[in-house]
Every structure is written in C-alpha cells, then in structure tokens.
Design a protein around this nucleic acid. Sequence first.
DNA 1: TTGTACGCGTTATCAC
DNA 2: GTGATAACGCGTACAA
Lengths: 320, 320
Amino acid sequence: MKNIADIAKIAGVSKSTVSRYLNNGSVSVKTKQKLDKIIQENDYQPNQFAQSLRAHRTNMIGAIIPRMNSYAVDETVKGVKTICDELNYSLLLNYTNLNVEKELEALETFYRSKVDGIVLMATEITERHLTIINKIQVPVIIVGQEHEQLHCVIHNDFHAGYVVGQALGKSQYKNVKFFGVTESDIAVGIDRKSGLIAGLREYSIEPSISLTSFNYQEALFDVTEELETQPHFDAIVGATDSIALAVHKYTSEHHKKVDKQFIVGFGGNPVTEIVSPSISTVIYHFEYAGEVAMNQLNQMIMQQAIEKRLTIDVTLAFKY
Amino acid sequence: MKNIADIAKIAGVSKSTVSRYLNNGSVSVKTKQKLDKIIQENDYQPNQFAQSLRAHRTNMIGAIIPRMNSYAVDETVKGVKTICDELNYSLLLNYTNLNVEKELEALETFYRSKVDGIVLMATEITERHLTIINKIQVPVIIVGQEHEQLHCVIHNDFHAGYVVGQALGKSQYKNVKFFGVTESDIAVGIDRKSGLIAGLREYSIEPSISLTSFNYQEALFDVTEELETQPHFDAIVGATDSIALAVHKYTSEHHKKVDKQFIVGFGGNPVTEIVSPSISTVIYHFEYAGEVAMNQLNQMIMQQAIEKRLTIDVTLAFKY
DNA sequence: TTGTACGCGTTATCAC
DNA sequence: GTGATAACGCGTACAA
C-alpha cells in the first residue's frame, strides 16, 4: 500500500504538493496532470487514520440500537444510513440487546472511537445516560424517546393514540379493550395510552385497560389470560404491533366463527398486512425520523443552532 | 482530552513508561500504582487512530448487508456482532439495498477505511466482485452464498430441501406444489429446489413447480395467479418463508372452508409462527452462521490456515 | 507554485 | 525499570 511520499517520489515532487493536489487543488496544470495519472495508476487512497489523527475528526457516526430484528429499528437505521451516505459519514453500529449496561458501554466505546456524533435509540433515558452524555463531549441525538435536556426526534405518540380513539368512536365501536405497556416507557406506555383515552372520551367511551409486555410471546400469554375470561370486545387496541399481532393470533385461534373483532396496533409493521385478515395499524415514519435525526446531528456537529425537539407525524391506516 | 504525554507529565515519568504500563505492564509497583490513580482520575483513553496508524491495524470489521429489515440478515449480523465483541473488533455496517453497484462501492469504501476484514452477505457473486476482492488485500468472508474461489459459510440448502421432500413423502402428501426463485441465486434457486425434488423422488412424487420472486408482494401476485387456476394441492412449499407467507395469505383468504393445505417455508422466520394457523418452516441457524463466519474471518486476519468452505446444518420444524 | 519542517498520539527500539 | 528517539501517514505554516 502506497503512501503520499511514494506518490510524491514517483511524480518527482514533494509530499506537500501531492497533499495540496488532493485538498486545495492549488497546483500547476502540469503537475496536476502528472498526479492525475500517477494516482490513478497506483490507485492511491489517503490513509484515513493519519487524516483523522491530524484533523481531530473521524467522519464517523455511531448508532446505538437496542435490537436488530425490529421493524422500527431497521427502518430508522435505514434513514440514518441514507443521510450518512449523503454527508459522507461512515456508520458504526452498536447493538445492545435491550441491555442498559451495554447501552452505557456503547456510549463510552464510541467516545473512545472518537466518532463525530452519536444516534441513540434508547428504550429509556436514565440518570446515568445523562451523566455519560454530558461527560463525553460528543453530540448525541435521541430518536424515539423524549428527554427535556437532550436533543431528540420523536413520533407523535399522543396524537397517534388520539386518532385511533377518534376513529373507533366514529365507527361506533363501543366496547374497547386496550393492552398497554409499562409507564417507564414514556412514549409507548404513557403518551399512546393517554391519546387513546382522550380520543375515545370525545365519544364517551372508556376503554378497558390491561398491562402487558413488548415481547410477542409474553404478550400472547397475557392476552390469552385476559381474553379467556372476557372474550368479547368490539375493538381491541395493542400498544404496539407486536401486541396487536398477539391479539390477532389468539382471536383467530379461538373464535373460529369470526365474531369480527376489530384489531389495531401501532407502528406500521408490514406483518400486520401479512396476517389474515389484516389488522389495522398506525403508520410510524421511522425511516424519515432516522433521516431527520441524522440531519439534526450533522447540524450539531457543524456547531449550528438547532431545535432541541422535533416531532414526526403519524399516519392512520385503518382497514374498515 | 488528555494524551499520553499529559499523563506522563502529571506522573512525572516519560511517555514510554506510560505506554509500557498500558501494554506490557512491565513497570515498577510504585509507578504502577501512581499511574493507576492518575489514569483513573483523568479517565484517559489511548487515541485509537494513533494506535491504528502505528499498528497498521484498525480492529474494525466491515459488514456488507443487502437490506435491513430481514430476519436472515439481522440474525446473521447479531452473530457477527457477538464475536466482534468477544474479539474486540468494532463493527462497521454498510447496507446496500440490494443494489450490486452499492455492494461493490461498499467493498472499496471498507478498503479505504482499512478495516481488518469484511463480512459479505451478497445475493450473488459476480465477476466484478471477484476482481475487487482480489485487488484489495483484505480478508473477505461470504456468508449465505457459495463461491469456489472465496471463503464462505453456507447453509445446507440442498439438505434443507431434501428433508422437506422426505417429510412430505412420509406424511403421504401426494400432490405437491413448489414456488421457487431464479436460478441465478445458487443457494435458494437451485440447491433448495434440487434437494426437494430428490427428497420427493424417494417417494415417487414429482412436484409441480412455478417461479416467483423473493419479494412478498410479487410472490403474492404470482401465487394468486397460479392457485386461482389450480387451487388444490396437498402441500405447498415456498422457497423462502416470504413466499410461504404469501401462499398462506392467499389460501386463508380464499379457502374459508379450510381444506387443509400444508404449507412449508425455509428460513425459520418467526412470522411463520405468528400467522394463524402457523406454517411449517425449515429453521436456518443464521445467528450461528454469523458467529462462525466472524470466527473464520478472525482466523484469516490472524493469518491462520482455514477451510475455504463451511456448512451450517438446518433444523426441520414441522407442524403436523 | 513549490518544498521544508513540524506536529497529531502512539509504540518499538535501544541505550542507560 | 526507565527514558530519549524514531516512525506510522498526513496536512499546513512558513520560507523560498
């Protein structure tokens, strides 16, 4: 592998001339042509580490993701990646398997790797997150969760719940069941639920509420237990698509005579379309959120002033 | 951010002593204790780029993946990541959106980034792939596809098809339909199909074969067209879980009277479990394959001799 | 326009 | 056990 000195020697010029050729371009036409050819022939590439070492800048972005095989995460990363490509950043991925410790480690790791910025898809922002984020002097943007003191891109979860509530009321569903999740997750546990309640209230409907888990298997267990005792509702809402899918699984295996329960989820996961009959969902624009987040992060890296909090709207996809 | 010189100055020793403390550890007990404390207090971290610059080694692995929201890809990456963590590599991700050009670019990009090794999940290995891989002097391992001249970790696709064929025969299914994909994909297009045919032949069954796409929507279209003309089979096999899910979608929406068609897919995608009734699948151990691939890659980086071709076995998960 | 010399932070070599 | 020094590859004042 050739370095800048080799190229300089071959061209019969000095290192700095080659360097200038590569950066400013301020060289004579003659040497330019010579270098054009030589660099082509030897397909020379500047060593990025030497560059980083000198520039104190790596052109790398670290993304911390809670899990891999998740529609929301994958879509978001897709968006982040798109903008990284545009802006000429490399994307470093760190997956934490829903483990908070690993999440904190990942922040430290990226700090050591001297990434220019970090995209964090956390499930929860603890005090310790805050401490580390403040310690490391690296721009961080949260996507999918909200926090007063941090920059974040969030989905309009309250509104998502609200439109579902309204739509159900409008469609004359009276008897509504909601399977929610822990309130330690603000976005999903609180906002979606309150939105739904508010939307339904406009039609004087009060939903029956149960608690379950993000995990499909656990949700299926809870749903089974709950619906076995009280099997009929006009509509059943799951706080996530996974939960809605669990509901679908239970009802389609226990109500052969299709007493037509209306099922709704949140997220826009394509699997809601694959099951039969399809279930309704609120489409979240994860990929777009990823793009927005990465653009914001770039602004932060460039030291530009930006808003601390950006909200992405959702789209209702009802199967009437 | 402090560097090794700062630490040395604070401790009243030389840079080399600090460096030795960090690496060999060959320092006196006294200075060791002093440095323990000082490094702790200043939470000093060696600059990885300076290290890389010197060591000609980055401790980075590049993974090239065709798409994000895919069970197979995600599981494989999970396995790769696990071993990366163990071996102290950082994982750089490059997603190509099924675009061959981007795949080639990604190889070049990683080459420039001086990653120590590359994990390539290609859909197809062309002559141009080969050219670039030979040009860049970076160890590359293919996972999920086979190639004579390259190191690869593959799934036993022929055997997967074979066991399905046998199981169907054993179960007295006579009238078998197979939806396959293009033969330009050796693993899926050829091996699975030939395996199935061989397995069925032992029971003197010859399947009816149609061609379709990896894409769920396209598969659904093809399946619909095909099954509308000839609706009944004892068993229908899809070359991938996606295709099997499309079959499931069609049959459950058009055969209300459950004339019990047996559906089988390949991959072990959990969605086959979520739909109702569940469909059978052949479980592919993607995560394990990822682990194996990354371990192999590490061997290659360490200049150890390894086998060019490793095969991972599959597991049949039949819902009788 | 071009070349010289130095520094980015680290580690390996060699004296002491 | 410790310290001075050179080298990794690059960019940039500064001088020519």
